[in-house]
């Protein structure tokens, strides 16, 4: 490791880090926000499940680099525009989480659902106040997968000139120099670990009952 090089380029690296954080975090959040209603629809209406899951599966199948390249043609953006990355990763997150949300809601034990109905909950209220909270652990697990994957996928966009930590890899390649590559990998892993921890803690805080069980 060449610490001098890192010292000299701290400002540049920090700005890439910041960009990377945004580019990974924003699609994760947007994807989750879109996946919740869509997943609920897929769970609620059987006919939509197959359709939504098929489309999601297809989207998920497309390699990220392909989507990064094709999206500017569809959105009318320039290829360097970070918006392409945000849209592409939002789609990925959505594709992954739609199914997770639907299946997580489905995994809530039927007796719980039925007793909510029997006590007079309307479907929407039961969904929001009974089933969704109980589905949080599974949705959280899916969200962790999406967030961590997004951190890694963002760096691919460096190939198209979008500035973020991925640039460190290209710099290293051009200079035949390990330091920026290793720094990039470490920072990526760090960002992923931070995201992972945040979601983990959030799920814990939101689901105190799961710990009550495990401490028994």
């Amino acid at each position: 490791m060449n610490w001098n090089w890192l010292n000299r380029n701290t400002d540049q690296i920090l700005s890439w880090l910041l960009a990377h954080l945004w580019l990974a975090a924003l699609p994760t959040l947007l994807g989750l926000l879109l996946a919740l209603p869509l997943g609920a629809i897929a769970f609620r209406y059987r006919w939509s499940y197959a359709a939504l899951i098929t489309v999601a599966g297809l989207l998920y199948t497309i390699p990220s680099i392909a989507l990064f390249v094709v999206l500017p043609g569809i959105l009318g953006t320039r290829i360097l525009n970070p918006l392409n990355v945000v849209v592409a990763l939002t789609l990925f997150t959505l594709a992954l989480l739609v199914r997770v949300v639907a299946d997580a809601l489905d995994s809530v034990p039927p007796p719980v659902r039925q007793s909510a109905t029997a006590m007079g909950y309307r479907p929407i209220r039961s969904l929001l106040t009974v089933q969704l909270p109980l589905a949080i652990p599974v949705i959280g697990a899916g969200l962790r997968v999406a967030a961590v994957s997004n951190v890694s996928l963002v760096s691919v966009a460096a190939l198209l000139g979008v500035p973020q930590l991925g640039q460190l890899f290209l710099v290293g390649f051009q200079l035949d120099f390990y330091t920026p590559i290793i720094a990039g990998i470490v920072l990526c892993l760090l960002v992923a670990a931070v995201f992972d921890t945040i979601i983990l803690v959030a799920v814990r805080l939101a689901t105190p009952w799961t710990r009550a069980v495990s401490h028994r």
Binding site: S152, S155, V156, G166, F169, G172, G184, I185, L189, A193
Partner: peptide
């Protein structure tokens, strides 16, 4: 750990 590992970084590292 492997999911979080940036593929591009790993690729370039090993290629070099």
């Amino acid at each position: 750990a492997l999911r979080a590992l940036p593929t591009l970084g790993l690729l370039i590292l090993l290629a070099l």
